[in-house]
Amino acid sequence: MNPGPAAVSVEAVVKHFGPIRALDGVSLTVPTGQIYGLLGPNGAGKTTLIRSLVGLIAAETGTVTVLGRRMPDREILAAVGYMPQSPALYADLSVEENVRFFASVHGLDREAGARGATEALELVDLAARRHSVVATLSGGMRQRVSLACAVVHRPRLLLLDEPTVGVDPQLRAELWERFARMSGEGTTIIVSSHVMDEAERCQRLGLVRFGRMLAEGSAADLRRRAGVERLEDAFLALSAGGS
């Protein structure tokens, strides 16, 4: 595969929260159209890294470049979709009202917003529940509404922080097929996860721990490097090496 120009480039970023070094000089380059998986245990810095990509966290040192713009850059966020770890939605609004709100926030007009919402809700298989109030939905459904809100404006870069938590295996497989299709259409996707079968579906993986990038490569690369057969074992072996 021939990687295009970088959609995301992170260089030697450091960020503290009080005494905790959440990002410790992490670097990362993701070419356009790639599905990049961030792996690592809880508290490794995956979420902090994703939040720095949307300007929610300012790097103390180092640089973050997104779609050619040095962050923080508010304008470029119109081309970025961000799905936080917990489904951040307005529980008292309907599914469609939520999705269309985030369409407007990203600058879509009424018509484009309505079209985007229809497509996004089909993507997450919730078109039939569009008029349901979010408070009445199950956890997995909320997760899907949250994903719809992140893709409604057809972002060029999609950041997904553990998108499939609470989603059943069948729907998870369907969502990953859709991620692959979006990637095929040129969308760059960065997804954090600690589910190994999801990691297998990423074109490239980054193993993050203690705010540092311990290892990078395809799933096959990582298994080979660790000399093991299962990605999970590779993950454990490479993590141990970094501590």
């Binding site: 929610l56 961000y82 936080p84 985030f102 926030v105 990203h106 600058g107």
Partner: peptide, 9 residues
């Protein structure tokens, strides 16, 4: 949702 708004334009 505020975090989401802050991650938007």
């Amino acid at each position: 949702t505020l975090e989401r708004l802050m991650a938007s334009p």
